[in-house]
Design a protein around this nucleic acid. Structure first.
Lengths: 133, 133
DNA sequence: CGGATACTTGACTACTTGCTCAATTAACTG
DNA sequence: CAGTTAATTGAGCAAGTAGTCAAGTATCCG
């Protein structure tokens, strides 16, 4: 990290035309403030959400649940993804842990639905990612 | 999949109180329509974005760039994450591939900034994921 | 030019993760 | 109650991935 600081110093020299080490300190502080931003717990939670979504199987499930706009039975979701019953269960469980789907037991069937959180997210994703590039 | 169809049939029996196999066919079609939704290419692109974001290092970089609201030099970003110079370069390259950051060469320094796409995404993420639960 | 500096690239590795199989729990049905 | 069906859980494995090291490219400077 000492090396890195030297490089930053050279960079600031270049940018500002001056070289005081207090400028380096200040910049380091600014950067760490940016990183802290909202708490680390929050960032961790966001990362959990992203990790939960970043698998083809799980993202497909989420997209279907969001598109459906209503709760779907596990056995219906089974028709949508190409994994075993067990794999599907693991996937849904991961999504539930991340707060992206909610479940309700109905007799011997179990129904899952997308939470508001993930609905908003998928909507923005679909809007911001355009294939026309 | 044959097994799965039988289960779906039993489920629809339960739900609708009727058991015609054409109902099963119809439901399967509805589900596949939901899955198709926007094209598969689009879904793939969305998944790429999610995958690119779902690593602590890369997500931290993105959050910092978004919070900064301006371009930052690689050497500044180096102060933010805990990986080698090479690891940082790999991370930035992955983000660029996903269209989440853009880079510009400035003399011997290289500067990265967040794209609009990722700014929107991070904003929604931060808004929708609240740690108060 | 030759040396230093900023950053990237490719190969390799340790770790993570998504999946399957087998066993288990829970709810309905005769 | 025993048997069947729906779904979950845990163990283990194959494939993917984030990181490091070493070497390479590109830019500046004396």
């Amino acid at each position: 990290m000492a090396q890195a600081t030297e490089r930053l110093q050279r960079y600031l020299d270049d940018e500002l035309g001056e070289c005081r080490s207090e400028d380096v300190e200040r910049r380091l502080e600014e950067l760490s403030t940016l990183e802290a931003g909202l708490g680390t717990a929050q960032a961790k939670a966001e990362l959990d959400v992203l990790s939960a979504l970043s698998s083809e199987t799980r993202y497909t499930l989420v997209r279907v649940l969001v598109a459906a706009g209503e709760e779907l039975c596990v056995c219906e979701l089974q028709a949508v993804v190409d994994v075993t019953e067990s794999g599907l269960s693991h996937a849904l469980s991961a999504l539930a842990d991340a707060g992206l789907v909610e479940s309700r037991k109905d007799g011997r069937w179990k129904k899952y639905r997308a939470t508001n959180r993930v609905t908003a997210l998928v909507t923005v994703l679909e809007g911001s990612v355009n294939t026309d590039e």
